[in-house]
């Protein structure tokens, strides 16, 4: 991408910081505490993956960062801004498990959607070229395909291109490859790392897959359940330009074994 943000620039700024975050939901059965006492910092330009048992609050945490869920206690900042202000400034983009493409819009028109809504003209002075983004995610030549003409993996690529169109500083991804088959998933994992290297964007990525978390992440945020708390923030000691084959190395297997152990109930 043309204007990749340099990661080597200023000394590690903080992209996302959470302090003593608690999220509670009022339900008919009473109050549910989804998150309790969650604090962590995500360094600008890094990839952090998030692991945890089902229902531990991974999506809730990501959605709290994205201003989709209200925080009950504590605070979250995205590049020093409250989530709401960060949202209005288009500091982050969100990729869901479903590609959430508009079925009547072609791939390229879907990528353009963020430029057409939310006073995009004011907040996005210099957006990325949709054509270039589709090429970046490997979809050159399919610009005019409608979503139903694309495979699940291709649709998810369009969703990633759409997320990048406003040049966000942070990419929040909630199990984006969860519905894909393994081969597709591997490909997209590799490409996501490539895109991350090319753009210098900060990525926070929720997954259920331990190998995916270890392969993608520089750090893995492991949550424990009931209520969701930070179990450990694990540093992944793998080369920065790792290839998929890294997953067959002893180091990698040691890392996944450690993560698996952290996921066991205490």
């Amino acid at each position: 991408m043309a204007a990749a943000r340099s990661r080597s620039g200023s000394a590690a700024a903080t992209a996302i910081s959470a302090r003593d975050v608690a999220v509670r939901f009022e339900t008919e059965a009473g109050q549910v505490t989804a998150l309790e006492d969650v604090s962590f910092d995500v360094e600008a330009g890094s990839i952090v993956t998030m692991l945890g048992p089902s229902g531990c609050g991974k999506s809730t945490l990501l959605r709290a960062i994205a201003d989709l869920v209200e925080i009950s206690e504590g605070g979250i900042q995205v590049f020093g801004r409250r989530p709401e202000d960060a949202r209005r400034a288009r500091d982050f983009a969100f990729v869901f498990q479903d590609s959430t493409l508009l079925p009547w819009r072609s791939a390229i028109e879907n990528v353009r959607l963020p430029l057409e809504v939310g006073q995009a003209g004011v907040t996005v002075e210099q957006h990325a070229e949709p054509e270039e983004l589709l090429a970046l995610v490997g979809l050159q030549g399919r610009e005019n395909a409608l979503p139903h003409e694309l495979s699940g993996g291709m649709r998810q690529r369009v969703a990633i291109a759409r997320a990048l169109v406003c040049r966000p500083r942070v990419l929040l991804m909630d199990e984006p490859f969860g519905a894909l088959d393994e081969i597709n998933r591997d490909n997209l994992n590799e490409e996501l790392r490539r895109i991350w290297e090319e753009t210098g964007i900060t990525i926070m990525f929720v997954t259920h897959s331990i190998p995916e978390a270890a392969y993608l992440g520089q750090k893995v945020l492991v949550l424990s359940a009931h209520p969701g708390r930070v179990r450990e923030f694990v540093e992944i000691d793998l080369p920065i330009d790792r290839k998929l084959a890294v997953r067959d190395t002893v180091e990698f297997i040691k890392i996944t074994a450690r993560l698996r152990k952290l996921l066991e109930p205490v």
């Binding site: 959605r63 994205a66 201003d67 989709l68 949202r87 209005r88 288009r90 982050f92 983009a93 969100f94 869901f96 498990q97 479903d98 959430t100 508009l102 959607l113 963020p114 057409e116 809504v117 939310g118 006073q119 995009a120 907040t123």
Partner: peptide, 22 residues
Amino acid sequence: SPQMLELMRVLSANDREVLLKV
């Protein structure tokens, strides 16, 4: 879909835009 609406919220789209675009 609720996710589509969440996407529009992340994009800070207003009701009018959600109506017209989605």
